[in-house]
């Protein structure tokens, strides 16, 4: 597998494929596996599958239930009457797509920024030995140990002073910081797995550290960067409290936006909430289903050290 190191920019797909040859041994092995093993595999899959997908099924059923039947008890597991009025009403509500746009902007920029910041930091932790390195590493890891509700109070004031309240920047800066521990650790692991000879060779060729990193190391790390980026994306995608408080009504992302639209003072538009949630989550789910090979493949290389 050392050959990979020779492959530069196109490494993305190559890396992902490379995860597989290793499993050839396993493949041969599984052919020899006996029936009980297959049975264990499928029953595990079924049990976890029920746990994972029944709630989604119920989400979908609720989203097509007419308003006057939502609270019927006992609920009928198979919808007796299907309506798409809730989907229609979601499509008719431009605010939802505004939230979706905000969410995508915030999450994508958070992902990119997280990757940039953590690749530098991860590289420093991986390939440099300097005083305070270990303390700094633990500091990064421990930066999430303090209650965020309290950070929020001060951050609010700080962002207000810098005129950053009610902007995307406020959210992006916060989320990027909160993703650092995971992303730095993932990428450090990834860089750890790249041999130092690469750096030495580039040095002998006369490349400075800057060029070595950007044109030799980074292309090889691409799968890891994609994986880290996907994790950072989800952090921005999921947050409720910071998004509600820092983004203001104009820049609200989906989580507070959905609550604002469908959860009322003393009632909730359950079917419409479910319909909207399914609709807005669908593109991300589909994207992740296609990207999952990078997600797994990208962490893999760095996984040895963890």
């Amino acid at each position: 597998m050392e050959t990979t190191t020779m492959v530069p920019a196109t490494a993305l797909t190559v890396e992902a494929e490379n995860a597989d040859p290793k499993s050839q041994g396993r493949l041969a092995l599984s052919a020899r596996r006996k029936k009980p093993f297959r049975w264990a595999l499928w029953s595990t899959l079924t049990v976890i599958g029920l746990f994972a997908f029944l709630p989604i099924y119920w989400l979908a059923v609720t989203s097509v239930t007419p308003n006057d039947q939502v609270f019927a008890y006992p609920p009928s597991l198979v919808p007796t009457e299907v309506t798409f009025e809730h989907y229609v009403s979601v499509f008719a509500n431009p605010a939802i797509f505004g939230y979706l746009k905000n969410s995508i902007i915030v999450s994508v920029v958070t992902a990119v920024l997280s990757v940039v910041v953590s690749m530098y930091m991860g590289y420093a932790f991986s390939k440099f030995r300097f005083r305070g390195r270990k303390s700094l590493m633990y500091f990064v890891l421990s930066s999430q140990m303090f209650p965020q509700a309290l950070l929020l109070v001060t951050l609010y004031v700080v962002f207000a002073q810098f005129g950053l309240l009610n902007t995307y920047q406020a959210l992006i800066i916060s989320f990027t910081t909160f993703t650092l521990p995971l992303c730095v650790w993932m990428l450090k692991g990834f860089f750890d797995a790249l041999p130092d000879d690469l750096i030495e060779a580039a040095k002998i060729d006369g490349a400075g550290p800057w060029r070595t990193f950007h044109s030799v190391i980074l292309p090889l790390a691409l799968p890891g960067l994609v994986a880290a980026g996907l994790f950072a994306f989800v952090r921005g995608w999921n947050d409720f409290m910071f998004a509600l408080t820092l983004a203001g009504p104009e820049k609200q992302t989906l989580p507070p936006g959905l609550v604002n639209t469908f959860i009322f003072e003393a009632s909730a538009a359950w079917p419409a909430l479910m319909a909207a949630s399914l609709l807005v989550s669908a593109p991300v789910c589909i994207a992740f289903i296609f990207l999952q090979r990078f997600l797994v493949g990208g962490i893999t290389a760095g996984a040895v050290k963890g």
Binding site: L244, G248, P256
Partner: peptide, 11 residues
């Protein structure tokens, strides 16, 4: 500007 009822006061 508007906030959900439950979060309105603190916001």
């Amino acid at each position: 500007p508007s906030y959900p009822f439950n979060d309105y006061l603190s916001q």
